[in-house]
């Protein structure tokens, strides 16, 4: 009986060592953009709440735009977490290669508020969700650490930081600039919205851009 117990314990230890022997370069990559929204729907009432109350409660929005005679505010919080599992084969030159599998999720809190010309809240929408952003597989040199999931569409920097580069946009994009959703005059869009629909489709970007 004692021998059997000792055998089982040794087997467990062996599994543990094998596990650590094959695992290599497991990685967690996190990106937090903006601060988590403290939204309480009891603080906001349609056709009653004034824009000043919202500003006092939540501060300036991440994005805003004129909308008819009114205005629209957008608050966004994003936390992207990418988890990679890396394994290697410890045999000759193969030990210099790492094979990784990655999965990424995004925790998003989004609040959209629409006000009329008097600054009264006409409607709002709040969304708090965790969504899968994508996954990826790679084979690489053992010491490389890189993101395998493209989450750049959720990490776009604010349009105000793109003044210079906006001069080098392609012609269809430049011609569409008067209808841009980043100008604050033509409405706005959520992070991660595909560029192949709506207003941006006029810019004839290739898929993936």
């Amino acid at each position: 009986m004692k021998n059997l117990n000792s055998y089982i314990i040794n087997q467990e230890k062996l599994k543990f060592l094998i596990f650590f022997f094959f695992l290599q370069g497991c990685t967690v990559i996190r990106s937090q953009i903006d601060y988590p929204l403290q939204f309480d729907k009891n603080d906001f009432h349609r056709d009653q709440t004034h824009i000043s109350t919202v500003l006092e409660s939540l501060g300036p929005p991440a994005k805003m735009s004129a909308l008819g005679n009114g205005v629209v505010f957008l608050y966004e919080y994003t936390l992207i977490t990418e988890r990679q599992l890396g394994v290697t084969v410890r045999h000759g030159l193969l030990s210099l290669l790492k094979f990784s599998h990655a999965n990424a999720t995004a925790d998003r809190k989004t609040l959209l508020l629409l006000f009329d010309e008097k600054g009264i809240l006409t409607s709002y929408a709040f969304q708090d969700l965790t969504e899968k952003v994508g996954s990826g597989v790679e084979g690489s040199f053992v010491y490389s650490v890189a993101s395998l999931v493209d989450t750049s569409n959720l990490e776009e920097e604010p349009a105000v930081f793109q003044w210079g580069t906006s001069l080098f946009k392609s012609l269809p994009e430049t011609l569409n600039v008067h209808h841009s959703l980043d100008s604050g005059q033509n409405g706005l869009e959520l992070k991660g919205t595909t560029k192949n629909v709506g207003q941006h489709s006029l810019e004839m970007r290739s898929i993936g851009q």
């Binding site: 650590f20 695992l23 290599q24 370069g25 497991c26 990685t27 967690v28 990559i29 996190r30 990106s31 937090q32 953009i33 903006d34 601060y35 500003l55 501060g59 300036p60 929005p61 991440a62 805003m64 650490v145």
Partner: peptide, 16 residues
């Protein structure tokens, strides 16, 4: 060698 982590936090200070 076995585990890596990379955390990025973007903070905005705004005034309107």
């Amino acid at each position: 060698l076995i585990y890596n982590w990379n955390n990025k936090k973007i903070i905005y200070d705004r005034a309107i």
